[in-house]
Design a protein around this nucleic acid. Structure first.
Lengths: 343, 343
DNA sequence: GTGAAAGCGCTAACAC
DNA sequence: GTGTTAGCGCTTTCAC
């Protein structure tokens, strides 16, 4: 059994309450006593017993809030949120989920302000944008003592505790390498992306292009198409396929996947066109099984829902800092045989 | 706050000790009282507070033992074992690791007997073999009340609580699909395996062959080579490559990976021969980066070290049964860009 | 400034 | 068979 607070109290000749005051910076303690207690605690390598602490803290339930725009990703992240809920329940943690329709950063800001007013203990945020308004809202929360963890997408230069998400450039490199192997190192490729305004997607393109240049010089990126509103994706894909008859592969950074695949199927080119895309949403699973998509790359949304809460809890509960400022989630490659969640 | 044992005691008009006796089946309680208490507990949906329980149990440290033959896999599994150690330390759990040189099942049996004598609380076993002697040792432990969890490789028909490991046939299918894609669906392939006597490796071959037959009829498996002692692998690979000039790919089920790759490099065929193998050991990482290996498939050794201990703990500590009899670890696909552990 | 004491939910030794 | 009591390590209230 490790050294306890009680032992420290006895050795230092003070009460447990005083040791508690010193070690947890609450109340006033004469600097002489403080020095002595700190010295002894350090010397004995005191580390609080988390179970005892948890038991004593159970009553004062702490509230953690999760804010996330509602889309496919959210649904899977929710599984991780629920897991964290379950695991932290015993510690008196309550989790509140605020899911907003669409990527409306103004709404996120007002939720943050509301939470600041309610003095919640911590906030996990999937930002709807990376701009100075969101940044300021985050900083405001942090400054009054509410730690914020961003996930899925980051807010640059903000005071958030850390960011949990995929290394997106690297994910793009992985996608590029997969495409390179599928094409045997030669051929024509097109890129589909939903918006040039989302940093994450641009990074996925950046990594893809980088590896194509260095490792697959014989692969030609013939076009990069922004689809914005998904409805035009199908038409654009059909035109592309018709105009570039010998297209070998399509790389899709996110949303338009099913529309693009529909076009490929429509023209009966599932066999000859190789497709690499992101995420394991149900439509993608289906397309993988059908053999239309060759590889899908996952970003572990469950971990992205789980870890921010866990990190906030550990920070608040035992002052543990996150291991790094960017907690990377795994880059999962799946094909038709490994796509089933059951494994 | 959920309903507590104390409340149940008050409502049933008995003492906490009696409720404890009823709910945890210790000591004798009149069947009348037992019925009443059980009824009330059930009605109120009583679930013990694990933190309180943990705090009270800390003193009687429980010992969990891990037995595993020492090889590359073990080194990585060890990381998971240490993680479990750390996480369970607060609950008064001590973990003892017994790592044996080589796959000597007799030695494992004597360790198991020793642990039975010492009355440890639970055993995590990576079996050195799947035979009736090991099975009997496991059953003996289980019968006197020491739960056993097997990992990495199972022992059929034994009374182990559950098995933690990869779905090996499925992993073989994944490997086959990757090879199929690398070869564009046509060509000649050879299989290297270290031993026909290890169930795991045969299952990896089984899955591979199955998918080749159904999905890639134009791919020809020209040879399956057993290398046993690794030293002959290099020579066998060289002969193969020389005799089958137009070989397209090599599938390696385990150990001989680096020797086979050496042969491929030796003959300057890294570019033309596609290689799919297992595990992310340092040599494999290097070969992936060099572009000699195309894909490596991981079995999450860290989880294989971690989960058995966690499962044993939960079973012993709060009677929680494992979710399934076979806890599958993830089938991780990695290529040169995603092979770095850092992600 | 500091200490005493109660209490979190549960277990276990001992008394009856 | 059942109850009493102390205690696990920590926090917190209240008194001095």
């Amino acid at each position: 059994m490790r050294v306890t607070l009680k032992q420290i109290a006895e050795i230092s000749g003070v009460s447990r309450a005083t040791v508690d005051r010193v070690l947890n910076n609450r109340g006033y303690v004469s600097s002489e006593v403080r020095k002595r207690v700190e010295g002894i605690a350090k010397e004995l390598g005191y580390r609080p017993n988390l179970i005892g602490k948890a038991l004593a803290c159970q009553k004062k339930s702490m509230i953690l809030a999760v804010i996330m725009p509602d889309n496919d990703f959210t649904k899977e992240a929710r599984v991780g949120v629920d897991k964290a809920c379950e695991e932290l329940k015993d510690y008196g943690v309550k989790v509140e989920v605020y899911s907003t329709k669409g990527f409306d950063f103004a709404e996120q800001i007002s939720i943050i302000n509301y939470l600041i007013g309610r003095k919640v203990s911590g906030i996990a945020l999937r930002p709807a944008a990376d701009n100075r308004f969101i940044k300021e809202a985050i900083d405001k929360a942090v400054e009054i003592g509410i730690p914020v963890v961003t996930f899925n997408s980051d807010v640059k230069n903000s005071k958030r505790l850390c960011f949990v998400g995929q290394d997106l450039v690297k994910a793009g490199r992985v996608a590029g390498n997969l495409m390179g192997k599928l094409l045997g190192g030669r051929g024509k490729v097109a890129i589909f992306t939903s918006s040039y305004e989302l940093l994450a997607l641009n990074q996925r393109i950046e990594g893809f292009k980088a590896i194509m240049e260095t490792r697959y010089p014989l692969i030609d990126i013939v076009d990069t198409i922004e689809t914005r509103d998904g409805t035009i994706a199908f038409q654009k894909a059909v035109s592309l396929l018709e105009s570039v008859g010998d297209l070998g592969g399509i790389y899709i950074t996110s949303e338009p996947t099913s529309e693009v695949c529909k076009a490929v199927k429509f023209l009966g080119k599932s066999e000859e066109i190789k497709i690499v895309c992101f995420d394991f949403y149900p439509e993608n699973v289906q397309l993988l099984k059908e053999g239309v998509i060759d590889f899908a790359i996952g970003q572990d949304p469950v971990a992205q829902g789980f870890k921010p809460l866990k990190i906030l809890f550990e920070q608040l509960f035992n002052g543990k800092q996150p291991e790094s400022e960017h907690i990377r989630t795994v880059i999962e490659i799946r094909e038709s045989e490994s796509i089933d969640m059951s494994n």
